[in-house]
Design a protein around this nucleic acid. Structure first.
Lengths: 188, 188
DNA sequence: GTCTATAGGCAGATAGAC
DNA sequence: GTCTATCTGCCTATAGAC
């Protein structure tokens, strides 16, 4: 993988996380990396090639972070808190989760990118389910793990979204409080 | 308020809820309502005028629905379920909440529209807090009402987002289960 | 109110030289 | 790999006739 390609992809990812795919242009990408737009087309012939590469790269990095969290010998609380940290990082940079942003823009994605997007969310929720099952003695709830995973994931993606509007970070904080109470077995 | 203006605004709202402001064009709007794009500019001189009108209109309609729910003499469960119904309606039409979509696209909004957006979410969450306080005997939680309102709102907006990716509606269903358990005083 | 016509800009994409 | 040059198409916005 060439360095220029990586540089382009990194920049493109940041732009999408902040403003969306529709705001991402070959020209802007070229200007900000010191090449011409034709050169960007050399690495990513069409825009959907770039989009797909973005989702694939993001998914892989995310999966690695999840794997690292899973193998640590810590409590459920700490694992879920580390999970929330991944979202916090994006929020700090005024970004959404790449895949959350693309979910909003799904009408402008091709079928291949949509499939990759599905993969991202399936993997993340499956990870949450596995973690909850492994720490089954640390929590209780009237909902099954798969439902809880959906609640957690929706909550975090939604919090990222709403915290762009009020810059206080309150929604992510509320999610963390909720997660902590849950993972401490206090309720739900 | 002229009929044509209303027609344009209704169509524009649907387009934004499905594809976002960046996908909304004067030309498309004109074609689908049988006029020319110059005529659309007659009603909404610049695009940010249209965007602002969209948010204001949506906020007002939403507020009216909330007021109607609040005054019904029913349980917390039923009120929160009616609240969730508002999101379900959007999901059925493959739409996001207008303001959720615009939150993702906040970088392309002017300051006036951003202020209107803040107003929407503040109002919705204040409504949730008021409802929870009025039904204080029907639920319990380690979190204060304002935090719970943030959790609920994030969860529903996020569920709408994630359910566009897998078309199963699972995330909204999970939110409803969560809300029911909460409002039944079962937990959290 | 609605139109025609058009300005001016930016988008994605490609051909072909180096 | 990177460039220049260019095509085609869509965008917002405006001037001015009817």
């Amino acid at each position: 993988m060439s360095e220029k390609r990586t540089e382009l992809q990194t920049l493109a990812q940041a732009i999408v996380q902040r403003s969306g795919v529709r705001a991402l242009s070959f020209r802007q990408l070229a200007e900000q990396t010191g090449v011409k737009s034709a050169s960007v087309h050399y690495y990513f012939p069409e825009k959907h090639d770039l989009t797909a590469a973005l989702i694939a790269g993001y998914s892989e990095a995310f999966a690695q972070r999840l794997a690292a969290i899973a193998e640590k010998p810590v409590s459920l609380t700490r694992k879920l808190s580390a999970f929330a940290d991944l979202f916090e990082e994006a929020a700090q940079d005024d970004k959404l989760c790449l895949c959350g942003m693309l979910a909003a823009e799904i009408s402008s994605l091709d079928e291949h990118s949509r499939a990759l997007l599905r993969g991202f969310f399936e993997h993340a929720e499956a990870w949450l389910v596995r973690i909850m099952e492994r720490h089954a003695d640390e929590w209780r709830s009237p909902l099954p793990p798969s439902r809880l995973a959906a609640v957690l994931m929706s909550g975090l993606e939604g919090a990222l979204l709403l915290d762009r509007v009020h810059a206080t970070g309150d929604h992510l904080k509320a999610q963390r409080q909720f997660i902590n109470a849950f993972a401490a077995g206090k309720a739900f």
